[in-house]
Amino acid sequence: MITYLLFLGTLAGIYAILALGLVVSWGQAGMVNLGLAGFFGLGAYASAILSGAGVPIGLAWCLATLLSAAAGIAFCLLTRTLRGDYLAIVTLGFAEGLRLVETNERWLTGGSDGISGIRAPLKSLLPDAFPSLYLAVTWAVVAVAVVLLARLLRSPFGRALRAVRDDEQVAAVAGKSVMRLKCQAFGIGAALFGIAGAVYAHFTSYIAPDNFGVQITIYIFLAATAGGYSRLVGAVAGALAVMTILEASRLAATAIPGLDAVEIAALREFAIAVALILIIQWRPDGMFRMTNQRAGTRPVARPVAADVHS
């Protein structure tokens, strides 16, 4: 039981890092990254391959993070003059394309067999303490990310970011470099996806292309939205909530009589999707109010600024 909880806690921490990445790029800068599974996979594969080639794990994590950030910034620059929908589609295409590369470049990625036996820090030295240690490492990453991001978002950079999100034209008129701000935010988001991937790879010690499908994207959007979509602490709480829903639905589903195993499984996936829809429907108010108070480029007295723009 305790191993199970430690395991879920670690996984929830990884989801929290992903959700934080989404909060920065989506919640704070208004850019949808539908390819977050791709960046997650990029970080995982980069770190697994590098550490397999003898690079120390810490350095591998850093390089994986940088690589993912660079990819994110590149896509942002590519679609810089277009509506957000294009960035969404391009990142989705990137995730699919990367999955093909992971599946087919067997010399590098092991193909659909995946990479197994990824080194885990300290596991050989302290096999029994490893689950708790790794839980601590993961949540330390979460904590560092939250602290750094909170500081960043309170700074002028954060205010400018929210100004851009709420109205790009107004922000541009106010002298902000819209493109630069957006790409920075998107890059930070991608960096977080990348490090989450690296943490994940060395945790499970096995990765395969199927790990980085569309399901994880849905879960993270669910986590970020459940937590209020623009709040850092909310993202962490949301990640914990999603993990609870995912695992608790196992027990709930078996409680329904008269259904066979396939029906139960389909119903479970259905319920998770419906939960995301309902949460987005109920939540938007809270997130706009909270962030506009902090945007700082417009009078705080203005009630719901978002209504002005269509």
């Binding site: 199927d210 399901q215 195993a261 139960i264």
Partner: peptide
């Protein structure tokens, strides 16, 4: 348990 055709 369902594996959802997914290792994770």
């Amino acid at each position: 348990e369902d594996d959802r055709s997914n290792p994770e």
